[in-house]
Simulated assay, not measured.
Amino acid sequence: MTDAPTFAIAPSFMGVTRRDPKGAFTVAGVPLDIGTTNRAGSRDGPRAIRAASRMLVDGAHPVSWLEPRDIPIADAGDFAIALGDLPKSFALIEQQAAAIPHLVAMGGEHGITLPLLRALKHRIGAPLGLLHVDAHMDTAPDNFGQVLGHGTVFYHAITEGLVDPRRMIQIGIRAPIQRETWDWTLAQGVTVIDAQAVHATGPAAVAERIRACLGTLPCYLSLDIDGLDPAFAPGTGTPEVGGLATWQAQAILRQLNGLDFRGMDVVEVAPAYDHGDITALAAATMVWEYFSLMGGKPTA
């Protein structure tokens, strides 16, 4: 627990002052949204998530009983991007991510996950398992003729060998999609649990499916905030009805202890469409759940 009231906490993530990434979970913002296909605005997501994270520092996590001061957290600020240039921005993001042993990235659009996975795969030397929470598959080969964008990220991640599709599981899928994209994704070996299946089976059953899919090898968590229903996360660029409740996502994450996560991102928070900061708070809370899930000990 901090000595200051929540409104007086420093504007870094959870008020931390550390910047050195060695031996720490390192939070970094990636304010990029030029690859979006609907509403832009997630460039402002990192700032909003940091501000909302102040709500999480006035006590211990109610499951792990860890306090923020118990966990080595650094805030590296925001990554540099190339204004208006998506390929160059991806190159810059990959370069900056490569220098951070255990990165937790705050977006920004979902396209940022591609350079993050490139950097992580280079460090680990083998394809990663992937837990992907989203309304959208993001496995299209292009977005309206553009080969890069927030709807193509996992097509490239699979075809570049950054992730092992047989160890990739997508949770909360429900958006309209081209049938050929759906069929291609399943043909690669990806496991898909749509939102209705999450509602029907419950968090415990979903967590077991995730564990079975990811196994014991290194894996990554990518959480698009539109995986949540817009009732719980309206502040996003491409909202889709019928999604997960915040409590469902939280309950699933709390049952994934022991998996070998090497990093995570939370993306597509667009505060201009938010109400009362509930979307930003949901994103900040999912990061806090990740720290707690990892037992407060980052894996490089």
Rank of each mutant, 00 (worst) to 15 (best):
A98L: 06
P68D: 07
F154S: 03
L92C: 12
A99L: 08
F25P: 01
D33A: 14
L259N: 06
T201G: 07
R50I: 14
Q96S: 05
G161S: 06
E268T: 03
F25V: 08
F291V: 00
Q178C: 10
M14W: 02
T152A: 02
E67T: 15
L116K: 00
Q178Y: 13
V133E: 09
P11W: 03
P298R: 05
T36S: 11
G129P: 05
Q250A: 05
H156T: 03
A52C: 07
L83H: 10
D224P: 07
L217A: 15
A270Y: 00
L116Q: 01
G145A: 07
M106R: 11
R254M: 02
D44Y: 12
G35P: 02
M55H: 11
L223T: 02
C213L: 02
G108P: 06
P31H: 13
R50E: 14
I9R: 11
V16C: 07
G276A: 00
V163G: 08
W288G: 01
P298D: 04
V147T: 15
S42V: 10
R166C: 08
R69F: 09
H122M: 09
V153S: 03
D44H: 13
T17H: 12
F261W: 00
E180H: 14
V190Q: 02
Y220C: 10
A97K: 01
P62L: 15
V287P: 02
T37K: 06
K22Q: 14
C219P: 04
W184I: 05
A8F: 07
L56S: 09
V57D: 12
A105C: 06
N257Y: 07
V104P: 11
A4E: 15
P101C: 08
Q178E: 14
D44G: 12
I73R: 09
T246H: 12
L92Y: 13
D274P: 00
V267A: 00
T2V: 14
A272V: 03
T26R: 01
A205R: 12
A233N: 11
P101S: 09
A205V: 15
L217S: 12
A60S: 12
A76Q: 09
F232S: 09
V267G: 00
A175C: 10
L281V: 01
G242L: 04
L253C: 05
L259V: 04
P298S: 05
S64N: 06
R39E: 13
A231V: 08
